[in-house]
Design a protein around this nucleic acid. Structure first.
Lengths: 195, 195
DNA sequence: GGGAACTTGGAACGGTCGTTACAAGTTAAA
DNA sequence: TTTAACTTGTAACGACCGTTCCAAGTTCCC
């Protein structure tokens, strides 16, 4: 029977996520991946395939670990509008403070990368966007059901708006945008909808 | 006395802009620049310096050629809210149709690039953002003066919101987002403010 | 213990990266 | 026409790119 892996593929992939997330695929060499993960080129290629496969795996892991939980929590939040406020507050905090400050969103970053034309990547980006919009729609419908929205507000259109706003926040946070300004902008976006 | 340049630096830089805009800096090699501009490595380095200088020059040219005129027109437009609608309509058209479709905005793209941490680039990105927000502020104040806004609307906060929305449009357009959806989203963003 | 299945480290692959050096060519004042 | 200033094409630089290959090591079934 075969030998067993001498490393934890999951931990290695996590290191790869952080590398690609912060610096981007194009700017990150395989050598850096080898150094940061501590595993050798052989093991890397045997486990994940080439760089493109590795990037795709990292993107998927990011979505599973960050986007999906956040979207699920948002969609299921029974509070309605306060859930949206909370979502953005947490987003802004994550993007501007702590270990991931100025990294932006790995998915948002991927939109401008050289692989964004590759079908698998594009499909992932589109699916991510649909998930975000869907979650926003859910929570806005909750808000509508709870009578929190002004008459005539359209949850579906507002959901798209809030999703694009999130991309804007993600992008601008990479240059060190002021979190207070971002917060105020989110407030300005929501105020007209609140009854 | 010296020899004279055998090429048009401005035309060369224009070609460089398109190259970096569409594909990004990291994914574009000097050889491609040489091929597309038609000038040799020597002339390239003698005229523009290294790759980083070339990128910065291209960014500046993009701002001068695209952003500055658009922002100036927006800020000076006497119509108020219809000017905002027109700005986004033109933006979406440019991003989704014609020769620049799916290229996004070169400045938005630059946010995720490896050079976005370099001071000169970051400063340019921040200045660009301030210009856009400033133009939005101007046109919204015009709208307020013309009585187009609902009572209580804050032009300054709304200006930031519309700027971030523009970044979102730019980003999402790179994967081929539906222009009609984007239009509807812009409408949804403006509707609550219109009297 | 023999041996098949698999992992691992390390060396090496050809290719491309951004950059530099230099000889030859061109220009116009002296 | 000499000469200094400058441009241009070509060649080459060392470094790194992503990837592959292979010998050596490890594991577990037979």
């Amino acid at each position: 029977m075969p030998d067993i892996k001498h490393f934890d593929p999951d931990a290695a992939l996590e290191a790869v996520v952080r590398l690609f997330w912060e610096r981007g695929v194009a700017a990150t060499g395989i050598q850096e991946v080898v150094d940061r993960t501590g595993i050798s080129r052989s093991s890397l290629y045997a486990t994940f395939g080439g760089k493109q496969d590795l990037y795709l795996a990292a993107l998927r892991r990011y979505v599973e670990q960050w986007s999906r939980p956040a979207f699920a929590q948002l969609a299921a939040d029974p509070r309605g509008l306060p859930a949206v406020t909370g979502f953005f507050a947490e987003l802004i905090r994550l993007r501007c403070r702590g270990p991931y400050a100025r990294w932006g969103c790995m998915i948002a970053n991927a939109h401008t990368g050289p692989s964004s034309t590759e079908p698998a990547v594009r499909q992932l980006l589109d699916a991510h966007h649909e998930s975000l919009v869907g979650a926003m729609r859910s929570v806005l419908r909750t808000a509508a059901a709870r009578g929190q929205l002004v008459p005539g507000a359209e949850p579906d259109a507002a959901a798209e708006l809030l999703a694009l706003l999130a991309y804007g926040v993600n992008l601008r946070s990479r240059t060190g945008a002021d979190p207070a300004t971002l917060e105020a902008t989110v407030t300005a976006a929501l105020t007209p909808y609140a009854k």
